[in-house]
Computed example of a mutant assay.
Amino acid sequence: MFGGLGDIGGMLKKANELKGKMAAVEKELQNTVIKEVSRDGALEVEITGKMKLKSVRLLQDFAAADRAKIEKTIYEVFNAALERVGQTAQQKLAGATGGLKIPGLF
């Protein structure tokens, strides 16, 4: 009658272990900073593993006429950084979950 309770206990233990691993990954992502530089070396963007913009730096001087180029460069570099953050988070979470796909996590 109560033979299945041992399985529930094991599942709860694994769930608690997974919760601890997830918390560790969450903390690691908070401390992770991804740096992305534009192809032409004109712009640098830093973004945290929690997808928060940390800094934007113009690495070259721009004339006012280059506004469209600057805006396009910011867009491209920021999106490249976001993509890398997503990949980094997926790798870290896959390690914590043993490859188990959990809905809502990247």
Rank of each mutant, 00 (worst) to 15 (best):
L59E: 03
V77Q: 06
N31Q: 15
I70Y: 07
L82W: 02
K69R: 13
A42Y: 10
D61C: 00
K69V: 10
M1V: 10
L93N: 03
A15D: 08
I34V: 15
M51F: 10
L29M: 15
I34R: 02
E71N: 01
Q87R: 14
G6V: 09
L18M: 14
K35H: 07
K21I: 05
Q60E: 10
A89H: 05
G6T: 12
N31K: 15
R67K: 13
T48F: 02
I102Y: 01
S38F: 11
E76G: 01
A81M: 02
Q60W: 00
A42C: 13
K35Y: 01
E46H: 07
T88L: 05
K19H: 14
L12C: 02
L53I: 11
R84I: 03
D61M: 06
G6F: 10
A63G: 11
V33T: 15
G104P: 07
A65E: 11
I70H: 01
V45I: 15
A80R: 11
K21C: 04
E28I: 03
G95I: 07
L58I: 00
E44Q: 08
A23W: 13
K50A: 06
S55N: 05
G99S: 04
A68E: 09
L53S: 06
G104W: 04
E26Y: 12
Q87W: 00
K101L: 04
E83S: 14
F78R: 13
T88G: 01
A63V: 00
Q91I: 05
T88W: 08
D61E: 14
